[in-house]
Design a protein around this nucleic acid. Structure first.
Lengths: 108, 108
DNA sequence: AAACTATAACGTAATATTGCAATATATAAA
DNA sequence: TTTATATATTGCAATATTACGTTATAGTTT
């Protein structure tokens, strides 16, 4: 145990869970927010924004990359990261759909 | 360690992280999906949908409730759960906003 | 080449999560 | 009051996550 069971669930459910799980940490939300704020790619300037150690941030970036939430291209010694639109569109649509289907629930 | 640091982040970042973290498990996505499908409240019929033990599902429901994603009202022996619109609207707007602000990123 | 910069990888301690069996609680029905 | 039904709590073992010091890698500059 401690391991998440994935086989009882659909591919889409697992996919959404992977994405939301990857976003489920304030540092990773802060990284996304920063990427949006500078509206472009960044290298290690996240270190100046978030008071966590470099290896910790590197680890968080890895989590976001594994979930396809961000992508990066090598730029000299630095790496330029940016939002992966496709994944955010997917998750955005998922929630938009829920919002639409939830409007007329008046139980509870 | 093992504990998430919250003080370096804004209230909104922490709030979004709490919500996405709560959604970051396929069983919990499946519960939400089921609530949407039956478009109403349910009791323990989730047990017939998801092949996990009752205590496990009860625990997942607790996580969703703690994050304000669902709410429940007692109905005899059973409990009627349903989507908490407000929280889903909040998270939906967060992603909608990202989608809008990401359109013209053409780096990476 | 040597020094510097940016990032990743490794190792580790503390804590959290997952899944379940067993048990508890609470309302309803008989 | 006994029995059944629905849900929650507890306790536990396995595994995952978080955070970071240290070390490695790789490109850049001098």
């Amino acid at each position: 145990m401690g391991t998440t069971k994935t086989d009882p669930f659909t591919d889409e459910q697992n996919k959404i869970a992977i994405i939301t799980k990857a976003l489920g940490h304030p540092a990773r939300i802060a990284i996304i927010d920063h990427l949006l704020k500078v509206n472009a790619c960044i290298g290690n300037d996240i270190l100046e924004e978030i008071p966590l150690a470099q290896p910790t941030i590197s680890q968080h970036i890895k989590v976001l990359k594994n979930a396809d939430l961000i992508k990066g291209t090598v730029e000299g010694t630095a790496i330029n990261y940016c939002i992966n639109e496709a994944t955010f569109e997917l998750i955005s649509n998922y929630f938009k759909n829920i919002a639409i289907n939830t409007i007329h629930q008046d139980c509870c």
